[in-house]
């Protein structure tokens, strides 16, 4: 054994994937944000009828779903980085990681339910 090697039980090679996915999801989020702002400006505001019709469109539902999936994935990479920096005890960090994953998956379920659950 080489002295001083401090191996940690975490996966290898996730760094580049996280780096890349953080940027790809950021671009998706930015594009949807511009699309949404464009739609609101084009209608010159929002009322219930227009809002409801907008979300009745399957294209907009899919776009919104992709936005939320990108947002939640983006949040995961960011929150995980924060936890790696500040939640030092391994047990605490893993517990918080699991809580965050659970919350994010629940959010995605909530989004699907909102988009497709109420007809």
């Amino acid at each position: 054994m080489v002295a001083g090697v401090d191996k940690r039980p975490v996966g290898a090679h996730y760094g580049l994937r996280d780096w890349l996915s953080q940027r790809v999801t950021a671009i998706v989020i930015t594009l949807y944000t511009l699309l949404f702002l464009g739609i609101v400006l084009w209608y010159g505001g929002m009322d219930y009828a227009v809002w409801k019709a907008l979300f009745a469109s399957n294209a907009f539902r899919v776009a919104t779903f992709l936005f939320m999936a990108a947002l939640l994935w983006h949040a995961w990479v960011g929150v995980r980085n924060i936890l790696m920096d500040y939640a030092k005890p391994m047990g605490v960090r893993l517990a918080l990681d699991i809580v965050v994953i659970g919350v994010l998956v629940a959010y995605l379920g909530w989004m699907i339910q909102v988009l497709w659950g109420q007809g």
Binding site: K52, A75, W110, M111, Q118
Partner: peptide, 16 residues
């Protein structure tokens, strides 16, 4: 993450 995403989801659900 802490406030924005849950409020956004709440807003979309409630408003629709």
């Amino acid at each position: 993450f802490l406030a924005g995403i849950p409020l956004l989801l709440w807003f979309v659900q409630r408003s629709l």
